[in-house]
């Protein structure tokens, strides 16, 4: 399947990635190439093949509802790009 520039610009916005126009052009061709590769799977007849969720006999487990993590607020805030009054700082979202 071939993608065009408009598709790539839309996908990039969904992925929250700014692309330069040169990147859009390069991505359009490389994505189309990879999707061509993926299309090989369409040739396989999967009728009657049971879907496999996991190769092992595994199931998700539940844990006890108790506090296991200590409070490390200061340690985590120290590596943040911007903080104020013990909170992460981001540009204003609601006017």
């Amino acid at each position: 399947m071939a993608l065009d520039r408009k598709d790539v610009i839309k996908i990039a916005h969904l992925a929250r990635l700014d692309l330069t126009s040169a990147e859009v052009a390069a991505t359009t061709s490389s994505l189309s190439r990879i999707l061509g590769l993926i299309e090989q799977m369409n040739a396989v007849d999967t009728k009657g093949v049971a879907p496999m969720a996991h190769p092992q006999d595994a199931a998700l487990r539940l844990r006890d509802d108790r506090v296991t993590e200590p409070d490390q607020r200061d340690k985590f805030l120290k590596i943040a790009p911007a903080t104020e009054a013990g909170l992460y700082l981001v540009p204003k979202v609601i006017e």
Binding site: L3, V8, I11, A12, L14, A15, L17, L19, E23, T27, S30, L31, I34, L35, I38
Partner: peptide, 11 residues
Amino acid sequence: VKRRILIGTYV
């Protein structure tokens, strides 16, 4: 990395 994020977002 950008290329793989974009493929993933598409699929």
